[in-house]
């Protein structure tokens, strides 16, 4: 559990890096990620191949930001069961044949499952890369600047911070429980109720102390807009490239163009 807490914030610790991606303006990174995600989501669920060109976005940014790819992939896998569950129901209900491969019919449900998985990979990677190259405080700062309702931002900030608090408290309680629990491997089912209750109360208490410490250092629940640094030509070029490529891949079927180039028209 201690490791879970460390892993939780490991990605954000990478945001202290100094690569060209880290140096980009947080607003530009936030907008690029948002545009990328919206474009990826906008595709038809039966067009998985149209999403393939977008794989370059996470690949290039991961390489430039020197973010360990394995670290990102581990986190992508966390979202996998949820998407698989949603996709498998499509396979079960959407059984009409979309095309055949070597005499085997591939259903529209299977095609949409592939689309969901690619979409999930691209969207989760975009968010993970954003977090690994931008401190959360800068992301939320720019969200405030974009006039995202403050309640959403506070909820995001608090949830993110208090997950660690909850994990730390659970770790301390489990350690104390084990030390006096003989050979028990986990928390006994009859102790589970009071354990969960105590965990909640202790977490609330600790969260209040953390909040007090934040308030003592000037944190206020209302908008606290910080002065943002200016956009550089590099920031504008990066955003322009992302916007142009996202729009191009959305409007033009690049796969078809390439196929036409290779096979002379399909």
């Amino acid at each position: 559990m201690k490791n879970a807490t460390k892993n939780l914030y490991a990605l954000e610790q990478l945001s202290a890096g100094g690569t060209c991606v880290h140096r980009l303006h947080p607003l530009v990174k936030l907008m690029a990620a948002a545009v990328f995600i919206v474009t990826v989501i906008s595709f038809d669920r039966y067009a998985p191949m149209r999403l393939v060109p977008y794989i370059f976005y996470p690949m290039i940014l991961t390489a430039l930001s020197e973010t360990p790819h394995s670290m990102l992939l581990k986190r992508v896998f966390i979202a996998l069961p949820f998407c698989l569950f949603a996709g498998v129901t499509n396979v079960m209900f959407d059984t009409a044949a979309a095309f055949t491969v070597g005499g085997v019919a591939v259903s529209y449900g299977a095609v949409s499952l592939v689309t969901i998985l690619i979409r999930m990979y691209l969207c989760v990677m975009a968010v993970l890369i954003l977090v690994s190259v931008t401190p959360l405080s800068e992301i939320t700062g720019e969200m405030r600047r974009l006039r995202v309702p403050n309640i959403f931002i506070i909820t995001l900030e608090m949830t993110y911070r208090y997950i660690g608090v909850l994990l730390n408290e659970a770790y301390s309680m489990i350690t104390a429980y084990r030390l006096r629990g003989g050979n028990k491997k986990g928390v006994d089912i009859r102790d589970m109720g009071s354990f969960a209750g105590q965990l909640l109360i202790r977490s609330l208490d600790r969260a209040e102390r953390v909040y007090n410490a934040m308030a003592c250092r000037g944190y206020a629940l209302q908008n606290t807009l910080r002065r943002s640094r200016r956009l550089t030509p590099g920031d504008i070029i990066f955003l322009a490239v992302v916007l142009i490529l996202c729009a191009t891949f959305r409007l033009v079927d690049v796969n078809r163009l390439i196929a036409a180039g290779i096979f002379g028209g399909v």
Binding site: E12, P135, S137, R161, R209, V210, N212, A213, M214, R217
Partner: peptide, 27 residues
């Protein structure tokens, strides 16, 4: 605070120390 764990909540020491200054609106 008595317990530093209550006071340190950012992923990095740098961000934790910068937290108050940023809330003061410093560039």
């Amino acid at each position: 605070f008595q317990n530093p764990d209550d006071q340190l909540f950012m992923p990095l020491i740098y961000d934790d120390i910068a937290f108050g200054c940023r809330n003061l609106g410093m560039p």
